[in-house]
């Protein structure tokens, strides 16, 4: 993971999404207008968060299996970066919502549940910091983390579908969805998601390595 090709790829992909996202033609929709371009910047934040939390989940299971302290460190740091990207997603979403839905927080089911999901992960950090002994802290917080991930998935992808949501693609069966994303958005949207996921992974590895050095010193 120390090789730099994927870091350069991450930068290239995000740069492409900045230029393509602002310049390429987009579908003209009322209310949304040009703000439809936000999809290349707001949504990838959430994708990056979900992938980082998935990494955290996997490393927590690994830690519970083998008890390697480094796995626990990786789980914490990826959850940390996931929370940062989640907060960015929340704030950018609120700016976007202010100018399309009328107010930054309209108690939309997806807005509410994503805020709850973030609080669950913040509680993970509080739980960790409340314990002194390393093994105890690692085990208890890993078990918490293993439960937090499925709850986050349910909050973000299942519950908003049960009711009507302002977010597109919610409510009803996704299998029969005719209002999918417009095809002209996809060539920019997918690279943007991949690019931001890689950037988030990069920051995670940096934080993980710093943490490891700190542990070696103390």
């Amino acid at each position: 993971m120390n090789k730099s090709w994927w870091k350069i790829l991450a930068i290239v992909l995000v740069l492409f999404s900045i230029t393509g996202g602002l310049l390429f033609p987009v579908p003209a929709k009322p209310i949304l207008n040009e703000s439809i371009r936000n999809i290349h910047f707001h949504v990838p934040m959430w994708f990056a968060m979900i992938v980082m939390l998935l990494v955290s989940f996997i490393y927590s299971i690994k830690y519970l299996n083998k008890g390697d302290e480094n796995d626990d460190l990786m789980a914490v740091e990826s959850a940390n970066v996931g929370i940062i990207f989640g907060l960015l997603g929340l704030v950018t979403g609120m700016v976007w919502a202010k100018y399309t839905w009328g107010e930054p927080w309209s108690n939309d089911p997806k807005q509410n549940s994503s805020a709850i999901a973030l609080l669950i992960y913040m509680a993970y950090m509080v739980l960790r910091n409340s314990m002194e002994e390393e093994q105890k802290r690692g085990k208890i917080s890993s078990v918490y983390n293993v439960f937090a991930f499925p709850i986050m998935i349910v909050l973000l992808f299942v519950l908003p579908r049960m009711t009507d949501s302002l977010h597109p693609g919610n409510g009803g069966n996704p299998g029969f969805n005719t209002n999918d994303m417009a095809p002209e958005l996809r060539p920019v949207f997918y690279p943007a998601c991949l690019g931001w996921i890689l950037i988030a992974s990069w920051i995670t590895t940096l934080r993980y390595r710093i943490r490891k050095q700190e542990n070696l010193i103390s």
Partner: peptide, 14 residues
């Protein structure tokens, strides 16, 4: 003029 914005954002990101 939109290219100016793209240039600024790209500079910040780089």
């Amino acid at each position: 003029k939109i290219y100016v914005v793209v240039a600024v954002l790209a500079t910040i990101f780089i």
